[in-house]
Design a protein around this nucleic acid. Sequence first.
DNA 1: CCGGGGACTACACACAGGTGTAGTATCCTG
DNA 2: CAGGATACTACACCTGTGTGTAGTCCCCGG
Lengths: 223, 223
Amino acid sequence: MAVTTADPEDLTARARIRDAAMAQFGEHGFERATIRGIAVAAGVSSGLVRHHFGSKQGLLEACDAHLVKTVRRLNSQAAGGAPDLNPLAALGPYQAYLARSLIEGGAAPLFDEMVALGEGWLADADRSRPDPPDVGPRVRSAVIAAMALGIGILRRHVSRGMGADLSGPEGERLLMRALLDIHSHPLLSLEEAAAAREALDRTPSPAGPATPRGPAPTQGGSR
Amino acid sequence: MAVTTADPEDLTARARIRDAAMAQFGEHGFERATIRGIAVAAGVSSGLVRHHFGSKQGLLEACDAHLVKTVRRLNSQAAGGAPDLNPLAALGPYQAYLARSLIEGGAAPLFDEMVALGEGWLADADRSRPDPPDVGPRVRSAVIAAMALGIGILRRHVSRGMGADLSGPEGERLLMRALLDIHSHPLLSLEEAAAAREALDRTPSPAGPATPRGPAPTQGGSR
DNA sequence: CCGGGGACTACACACAGGTGTAGTATCCTG
DNA sequence: CAGGATACTACACCTGTGTGTAGTCCCCGG
């Protein structure tokens, strides 16, 4: 059940402005988006934007609030259900906005909620794990949340790299298959991870040149 | 070996301007950063910025070029070495800039290089895998690259969620331990993944409400 | 009928910031 | 020692854009 943005004709001017703003903010970012541009997209005068939302900042806050409301609604719909490997996909047209908001700092509460959700799941899973994890579920959940969101944030790059548009159904399915494969096949064996962890412990200062050997695309040596 | 930004005094004005610009662009984004602000940070007049780089756009391109050069140098230093689980960390002060650049579309070639590197590694790993992966290494590499970069892009949120500053050495180590654990413990069992894949194949239209059950922090149901 | 308030528009204002120009100092080259 | 190029500054300009103000239309309660 994706977010359904009804016909613009069916919405009040206020809602149309908000949706247009979320689209523009999502696509161009807060600074680059202009009140006039949003007004044109919503089919109203720029003054009306100010009338309804007071200021550009106020408009942004209304967008954030609406995003939070939408996400909470989606979350409660899927309450108790299994977590999603590709959380951003559920937001449909608001996906770009959430990505921007995360980057520009607005969606912090949503991120924290994701972390909390994942933390619960990981804590459960840890109980049936032979070896105890050496970092707590909260830390791992934060990292996993960031990784999962990275796909949506870098949607354009991922689409280019995959050769399929992530926004389309075929790209979405391809992504899902890739995620299933990735998350069911660890990049490191337990032995490799243990060796890397030990190497990490041996270097007291983080300036050491030893990069723990581990498989993931790279950009360079360790810091 | 991190990127070492030498004393500002030791650099030419041009280099100082470029570094200041990368810092400002990285922290505030392209739009919000101002030429005057960059000039002040670099200790020069705003006219000199224009003198050296022609325009704000030209400055941005020079920053991109320098980033590419820096990353290539790091890559060649670590050539043949093992990939890094946390690629962005190696960039030190340029980390924020790369994150911004990826979001705003400038660093596409770098992303593609990461994907190519990871693709090679995955192709190697696939040869010693009992079950054949059902998506090619390039697609998986693109997804993994995005996931890995997501941590750096959402650095602030991750730091908050972990309770430790990712920019500091202690946060970096904690992240590394989390990554080692995550990448050595699959979130899905092979059976779960197979079941989810099968469920995915059964739903012809992607509008189906069935979210393949898989463990990761979530935001809502599937699209 | 009518008074008021909300929705909505048009237009003017102010200012931030990118860009352009002129001028000065400094250094290299012949 | 020219003399020109390059590094660098100060300042004027102008567009874009957020914001403020006044006014119109329309619905609704009394």
